[in-house]
Design a binder for these strands. Structure first.
Length: 435
RNA sequence: GACCCCUUCGUCUAGUGGCCUAGGACUCCAGGUUUUCAUCCUGGCAACACGGGUUCGAGUCCCGUAGGGGUCGCCA
C-alpha cells in the first residue's frame, strides 16, 4: 500500500507553527516512504476563507519547500458528497435526525456511535482506547444543512485515499469518532499518529495573545524557511544520533514516527536563531547578496551595488537573521547615521578623545594610500607614539565612523568606507559631541 | 468534574534493564585568540517529578502520588 498523507488546514490567513510542524511531519513521512503528500484546503468557513488567505497558505508552503502531489482538494466543492453520505448513513439507521436539545433550530443529523469499546494503535502514542460509555453520538450535519468537520474530514480523507493521518494531539478524542465513521462508511481506517503540542516560552499552549506563533511571523522576523523547517522538524523528533543541522534529504532519510516524542515541546527562539545563523552562513554568496539587496530595498536604502557588495562581505558571518542586515549595515549608506547613546557616553565623551580624533584625522589625511593595510599600520604607529591604549583609540574611531561599538573589523571597515567618508564622519562626530 | 494523555539539564533531546559516576545541542559563565563586538578554540554550571514495588541490578518494567496538557460545540 502506497503511503499517502495530507495537510488539511483551514485557510484563515494565519497558519500556526504547530500546524506547520504537522505538515512537515506528514511531508517527511510521505517522502521517507516514497509516498504522496497531499493538500486539502478546508475552506468551508466562507467568512474566513478568502482568496488572500489561501494564497498566504500556499506561500508559506512554498517558503518551507513543502511540495505536494496532485491538485489540492477544496473542501467547499465537496458539500454534495458529504450530504449524500449523511443520507446514506440515515437510510442505514447509522444516523438519526433530532432537534438536539430542543433548541427549535430544527433537526440536525446525528451519528450513532456503535456502542462498543474502541481501541487503536497510535503511531506515536501507542495503544489508545476508550470505553463505549465514554463516547457519545455527535452531530454530522447541522440543522442549517451544512456538514460538520468530522463528516467532511473523514469523507475527504477517504476521497483522497489518505493512508496515514498525522495531526495534533488535540485530535485524539476525535479519532474514536472518526474511526467509527470510517467503519460506518465501509472504508478502511487509516493509521493515526498524534503529535504533541508546541507550547510557548512559558510552557503554556500558544494563545492568540502570543502573537508570534504564526509562520508568517517567523518569516518577518528574518528566519530562513530552511532553518525553520529544520528547527521545527527537530522539535519533537530526533534522528537518534547527534545530528542537528540536517538537509532535507537527510531528514527524509532518517525520519520515522517511532522517533517522535510524545510530550509537548517548547519553542526556543535562541536556538532557532543559532540554527538560522548556521543556515545564513551556508548560503551561497549570490543568495546572501540577493537577500541583502532585498532588505536594503525594503528599508528604502538606495545602495550602489559595488559598494554594497563589499559591505555584505564584511558582515557576512555576523548576520544571524535576515532582520539583522539593515541594522548592521545601515550606517554604511547614511552619513547622518544614529549614534548609540551608551557608546557615546562611555567611549566618546571622555577627556582627550577630541584630541585623539583630531590627531587620527590628521594621520588619515596624510596617508598616501588609504586602505586596510595603511590604516592598520598608521593607527598602530599612532598608538605606540601617543602612549594611548589600543582601546582608547580604536573605540572612538569606530564610533565616530559608525555610531556603534561593535561591527566588522575596524580596518576593513575603514577601507570600505573610504577616506572621504571617514574624514567627514570624524568631523561630524567631533562637531556633535566634542565641542 | 468525567474521560484520555504526558513528565531526563533553563530549553530541544540521546537513552528501549547492566556500556549511565546519564551523552549531545542551544542558552549562560570562565579562560584563550582579537584593537572592539561577533566568530573561533578550551573548560564549566546544569536533569532522570516524587513514593513504593519487580529484579542480582531501574532513567529504562509495574503501581500509586503530585504536577502539566488535551477533550467534553449544530468550531475546525
Amino acid at each position: 500500500m502506497k503511503v499517502r498523507t495530507r495537510f488539511a488546514p483551514s485557510p484563515t490567513g494565519n497558519v500556526h507553527i504547530g500546524n506547520m510542524r504537522a505538515a512537515i511531519y506528514n511531508w517527511l513521512f510521505a517522502r521517507h516512504h516514497g509516498g504522496q503528500f497531499l493538500l486539502r484546503v478546508e475552506d468551508t468557513d466562507r467568512e474566513r476563507s478568502t482568496p488572500e488567505a489561501i494564497q498566504t497558505l500556499l506561500d508559506a508552503m512554498v517558503w518551507l519547500k513543502l511540495d505536494f502531489d496532485e491538485e489540492p482538494l477544496y473542501q467547499s466543492t465537496r458539500m454534495e458528497a458529504h450530504l449524500e453520505a449523511a443520507e446514506m448513513l440515515l437510510s442505514k439507521g447509522l444516523a438519526y435526525k433530532e432537534d438536539k436539545g430542543g433548541t427549535g433550530q430544527g433537526e440536525c443529523v446525528i451519528f450513532r456511535m456503535p456502542g462498543t469499546d474502541s481501541i487503536f494503535e497510535d503511531g506515536i502514542k501507542g495503544t489508545l482506547s476508550k470505553k463505549a460509555e465514554n463516547m457519545q453520538d455527535f452531530v454530522i450535519v447541522r440543522s442549517n444543512g451544512t456538514p460538520v468537520f468530522h463528516l467532511a474530514n473523514v469523507l475527504d480523507d477517504i476521497e483522497q485515499n489518505v493512508t496515514h493521518v498525522i495531526r495534533g494531539d488535540d485530535h485524539v478524542e476525535n479519532t474514536f469518532r472518526h474511526i467509527a465513521l470510517y467503519k460506518a462508511l465501509g472504508a478502511d481506517v487509516p493509521k493515526y499518529a498524534h503529535l504533541p503540542m508546541i507550547v510557548n516560552a512559558q510552557g503554556k499552549p500558544y494563545s492568540k495573545r502570543d502573537g508570534d506563533a504564526f509562520v508568517g511571523d517567523f518569516r518577518e522576523k528574518g528566519f530562513l524557511g530552511e532553518a525553520l523547517f529544520n528547527y521545527l522538524a527537530l522539535l519533537g523528533w530526533s534522528p537518534g544520533d547527534d545530528r542537528e543541522i540536517m538537509s532535507m534529504p537527510e531528514m527524509v532519510e532518517a525520519f520515522s514516527l517511532e522517533r517522535c516524542q510524545s510530550s509537548a515541546a517548547q519553542v526556543d527562539l535562541k536556538k532557532l536563531t543559532w540554527m538560522n545563523g548556521e543556515y545564513m552562513l551556508k548560503l551561497p554568496d549570490e543568495d546572501f547578496e540577493m537577500i541583502c539587496f532585498g532588505e536594503l530595498d525594503k528599508a528604502g536604502i538606495d545602495a550602489e551595488p559595488e559598494y554594497a557588495r563589499r559591505i555584505f562581505k564584511l558582515v557576512r558571518e555576523r548576520v544571524k537573521t535576515v532582520a539583522d542586515i539593515v541594522p548592521m549595515t545601515g550606517y554604511f549608506f547614511a552619513d547622518e547615521f544614529e549614534y548609540d547613546e551608551q557608546a557615546v557616553r562611555k567611549k566618546l565623551q571622555k577627556d582627550g578623545v577630541a584630541d585623539t580624533l583630531a590627531k587620527v584625522k590628521a594621520v588619515f589625511e596624510s596617508l598616501e594610500i588609504f586602505d586596510e593595510a595603511s590604516t592598520d599600520k598608521a593607527l598602530h604607529d599612532f598608538v605606540e607614539t601617543s602612549g594611548l591604549g589600543f582601546g582608547a583609540v580604536m573605540a572612538p574611531v569606530r564610533i565616530a565612523v559608525s555610531g556603534v561599538q561593535s561591527g566588522p573589523d575596524l580596518f576593513p571597515l575603514l577601507n570600505v568606507l573610504g577616506r572621504e567618508r571617514v574624514l567627514k564622519r570624524i568631523e561630524r562626530t567631533t562637531g556633535l559631541f566634542l565641542s
